[in-house]
């Protein structure tokens, strides 16, 4: 596969030139804040009484260390705004968010869970932290909506997958998006671990191994066979068996054998038998590979036949 590096180089160069000649626009609010002075909470509440009422019960109000100037701890000095009453004359985290500038919320919220927040895609969202958090509210964690409802508000495509037949129990309320995803920025793709396999086996420990007999895609990435959010096929499989298996493996060679039409009994095991059909081997070999290859995630036991070298994952 040849990469079109010359094109990429040209694109990067054009982008840098664009940056160089970019018209500086600045942030008016930041300039306004520089000139302003603090006026204190009472002045703010003169007009914003309704906000003050709900905010009084919020965690921020309870935990503040800037008594008397609580509003301005986040919004910055408000004297210019108090005089002009122009919303543009005061910093509003919900509308004036600038992902390039230091995030005012992270001044206090600088714990380990936020270590990668400034590099995360969520950090670039339209309104930053305010996209998910309502600072003046009294809801737990000041979230606009609780649980997965908040995430699905933007990630509707993922929300839809949880309605498919096979899904992690998120819509049942038994898990939440944050069970897997570190919403403030994770080690990899917003997950709690640095690779997807490690994330899955932190709960599905029985699939982790290491096993003597391996199934290679299990070691590579669980996402090769599974879609964690939801699928039509059982067990979160991206396709139904046997088609998923046949994406890599040839069809079992017994598939092409013609079946006898009629009832039969096994001569050596008379308790075994049943109704045989012409297509019996096809339905036997092309329905569900894991009926025989049960240990699809790996096993420490060799399979029965020597010629398969023990790696058929049947026990």
């Amino acid at each position: 596969m040849r990469y079109k590096l010359p094109f990429l180089r040209r694109a990067c160069l054009a982008f840098l030139v664009l940056l160089f000649f970019a018209v500086p626009a600045g942030f008016r609010t930041a300039d306004a804040a520089k000139k302003a002075e603090k006026v204190g909470d009472q002045t703010c509440l003169t007009c914003h009484e309704d906000v003050g009422k709900s905010f009084a019960h919020s965690v921020h109000a309870q935990k503040t260390t800037t008594k008397g100037y609580t509003c301005e701890a986040c919004h910055g000095p408000g004297s210019v705004h108090a005089e002009s009453m122009d919303p543009a004359d005061i910093y509003n985290p919900a509308t004036d968010y600038n992902p390039v500038a230091p995030n005012p919320c992270l001044t206090c919220h600088n714990g380990p869970q936020f270590t990668s927040a400034t590099a995360s895609a969520h950090h670039e969202l339209a309104d930053g932290c305010s996209d998910c958090h309502q600072v003046h509210s009294t809801e737990p964690k000041l979230l606009k909506k609780q649980g997965s409802e908040l995430c699905v508000d933007c990630h509707k495509d993922i929300g839809a997958k949880f309605s498919l037949t096979s899904h992690h129990p998120v819509k049942e309320g038994l898990m939440s998006c944050t069970s897997c995803h570190a919403v403030h920025g994770g080690d990899n793709k917003f997950t709690h671990t640095d690779n997807s396999r490690e994330l899955c086996i932190s709960c599905h420990t029985d699939k982790a191994g290491p096993f003597v007999f391996e199934h290679e895609p299990v070691n590579e990435d669980c996402g090769i066979c599974h879609d964690p959010h939801g699928t039509v096929a059982n067990n979160l499989l991206k396709q139904t068996e046997p088609f998923l298996c046949m994406s890599c493996h040839p069809v079992h060679f017994h598939t092409g054998i013609a079946g006898y039409i009629g009832d039969f009994k096994n001569p050596l095991h008379p308790e075994r038998g049943g109704k045989s059909t012409l297509d019996g081997f096809k339905s036997g070999m092309l329905t569900k590979c894991t009926q025989c290859h049960t240990q699809i995630h790996g096993s420490d036991l060799p399979s029965e036949s020597i010629s398969s070298r023990g790696r058929s994952l049947t026990r």
Partner: peptide
């Protein structure tokens, strides 16, 4: 789906 006996011919008339 796991019930079948082989046929000696392709039309399923004789058990194998």
């Amino acid at each position: 789906n796991l019930v079948v006996r082989e046929a000696k011919d392709r039309i399923g008339s004789a058990p194998g």
